[in-house]
Design a protein around this nucleic acid. Structure first.
Length: 584
DNA sequence: GTAGGGTTAG
């Protein structure tokens, strides 16, 4: 029931059912009055339409869908705009059935309502319904074509998107920009670059799409090149462009560029929105300027979960783990709900502190919020548990992760290796290959380390051969160092020495120290002396080398050699570093 | 204040 203004009181009622069900006799009596009334009603709706609209909009903004629907139901003749608002509201709350029901109910539909409904289907994950509506839509606009094309790009069907792109009757700059962005999100970098090159109506969004897209796939240098080119061509960057550039600068530790942009933004009088704040916090943290990160954080107006997490992560990155955990607590206190990233960083800081107890507390909160099976949170938990001595718990977490990535597999393999569970590591590797994942440098290191800790020389040789043949993996110094370690631990000292001499990368002190350490285990004086000589060439003040060699002589009662080494050490003013240990 | 294009943290 609606309460109508005074004009309707002449009908004998101030309340009218919306269906206007009036008895026949009454109707005859009231006909002249009724016509007067209908004119009034029309005027009334016109007059009050904006207030309905703002009331509806308030409820929709506050996500009070059912409240909004009650208001909507009270509107005598809702216009296409109000219908559209409701349809969008339902779609945003993932209530696609309600949205569609209302959409079909609409007495008239314009391009906006059609396009909103198509977009709503896509947001709710129903591509085929979206396509069905698109096909049935009369008078498709360029927005309709863009929306459905974006849908196919979102769902990974690049070919269909390309077909739509070719077939659409009008292509404005937004369509081109969408296609460029879609190519990037589907890993088709070269196609994106090609399209950008041939497009004749580039605007700042086209440029920003290139900069952001290239940075996201790790071609950050190239992203900054595009930024330079854009500035050269006289296109003015927007705040979004600058956020992309700051993000890229943070990755490349280009503090100079970041600071320059910071100055520009301050000069232009932009306030630090959440995107700007988060990117600058990360830039300064990566460049080891936490004071500046804090300043940006304090200056930012809306501290959302991303801004808090950027600061928390920055602290962790700079080994300020206690501060990181304080920030995590303060974030909870201020009523911001942590997400996967916040938990990941908080857990990483627990790991940095080797504080399993606090890690478990945070894990409990993560479980309550349903993040335990998240791949990032899970990966952090694997490292935390394996580093803090609990390989079984680490493996249990690994098994629970829903969508394991390469980091999940690597962390578990490395954890097993560190715990001397060499066979587990090898089993995991086989499972990983069967699961269709491509092993990388870290997998390789983990496997060699597993072989080393479990004394599996033949297996290590096979892995070394396997990975040397794979083009996707670059064999680095650390891999040679691991292989030297396996050989040397197993007593193959000469072979280890040959490997160091013949490897294509320059050996460092650590590799030779590995060999020297193994020589003392196996009492091999010849190789030990040669290794010590190499270390001396690389670092004349390496106390570890002197100590190892001296211990080797001492173990064979060669006391004159021991005092010779001690004398040499004294002459070169080398002092043995004292050992430290700590207990929590 | 009702439709399509670029952005932040792990």
């Amino acid at each position: 029931m609606l309460r109508f203004p005074a004009i309707f009181q002449s009908l004998g009622t101030s309340e009218l059912p919306l269906s206007l069900s009036i008895s026949r006799s009454n109707l005859r009596k009231s006909l002249p009055k009724l016509s007067e009334c209908l004119v009034g009603l029309m005027n009334y709706t016109k007059l009050t339409a904006p207030s309905y609209k703002s009331l509806l909009s308030d409820h929709l903004k506050n996500q009070n869908l059912d409240q909004a629907r009650r208001v909507f139901n009270e509107i005598p003749f809702p216009g296409v705009d109000l219908y559209t608002m409701m349809v969008i509201g339902y779609a945003r709350m993932r209530r696609l059935d309600n949205a569609l029901e209302l959409f079909y109910e609409m007495p008239e539909k314009d391009a906006v309502s059609w396009n909103s409904m198509i977009k709503g289907c896509l947001d709710c994950g129903d591509l085929s319904k979206a396509k069905e509506l698109f096909d049935g839509m009369p008078g498709k606009s360029v927005v309709s074509w863009t929306t459905i094309m974006n849908g196919f790009l979102q769902f990974g069907d690049v070919e269909m998107a390309e077909r739509l792109f070719r077939e659409m009757p009008v292509r404005d700059v937004a369509v081109w920009n969408s296609m460029i962005h879609g190519y990037f999100s589907n890993g088709r970098v070269e196609d994106a670059k090609k399209l950008f090159k041939v497009m004749h109506c580039k605007n700042v969004i086209s440029w920003t799409s290139m900069i952001g897209g290239l940075d996201r796939i790790g071609r950050t240098d190239e992203a900054l090149q595009f930024f330079r080119e854009m500035m050269g061509s006289g296109v003015q960057p927007t705040l979004t462009t600058l956020v992309c550039v700051v993000t890229a600068s943070a990755k490349l530790l280009r503090l100079d560029l970041g600071v320059q942009i910071h100055g520009q933004i301050v000069k232009l009088g932009y306030c630090f929105d959440e995107f700007v704040a988060a990117s600058f916090i990360t830039l300064y943290a990566n460049c080891k300027q936490m004071e500046n990160s804090y300043s940006v954080f304090n200056a930012s107006l809306h501290k959302n979960v991303v801004v808090w997490t950027a600061l928390l992560t920055g602290c962790g990155l700079n080994c300020q783990h206690e501060d990181a955990l304080t920030i995590f607590r303060n974030m909870l206190k201020s009523g911001v709900l942590p997400n996967q990233s916040s938990f990941t960083s908080a857990l990483n800081s627990c790991c940095g502190l080797e504080d399993l107890e606090r890690g478990k507390e945070i894990q409990t909160s993560a479980v309550k919020l349903g993040f335990e099976t998240d791949v990032f949170v899970g990966n952090s938990l694997i490292v935390l548990y394996t580093k803090c001595g609990s390989i079984n718990d680490g493996v249990a977490i690994f098994k629970r992760i829903g969508d394991k990535n390469i980091v999940s597999w690597n962390s578990t393999i490395v954890g097993c290796a560190q715990h001397g569970c060499g066979m587990w590591a090898l089993t995991l590797f086989n499972q990983m290959i069967r699961a269709g994942l491509e092993p990388d440098e870290i997998t390789f290191t983990g496997l060699l380390s597993a072989c080393s800790h479990s004394g599996m020389l033949q297996k290590a040789r096979r892995f070394f051969e396997y990975f040397s043949q794979r083009k996707s993996v670059e064999v680095k110094l650390e891999h040679y160092a691991c292989m030297v370690d396996v050989l040397a631990r197993c007593g193959e000292l000469e072979e280890a020495e040959e490997l160091i001499k013949n490897m294509p990368v320059q050996a460092n002190k650590t590799v030779w120290l590995t060999l020297l350490g193994a020589c003392t285990m196996h009492c091999n004086f010849d190789v030990a002396e040669r290794a010590a000589k190499r270390i001396e060439d690389l670092d004349p003040h390496c106390s570890a080398a002197y100590v190892l060699l001296s211990n080797l002589y001492a173990s064979a009662n060669r006391w004159s050699d021991v005092s010779r080494i001690r004398e040499k050490m004294k002459q070169s003013r080398t002092v043995k570093q004292p050992g430290y240990s700590w207990v929590t």
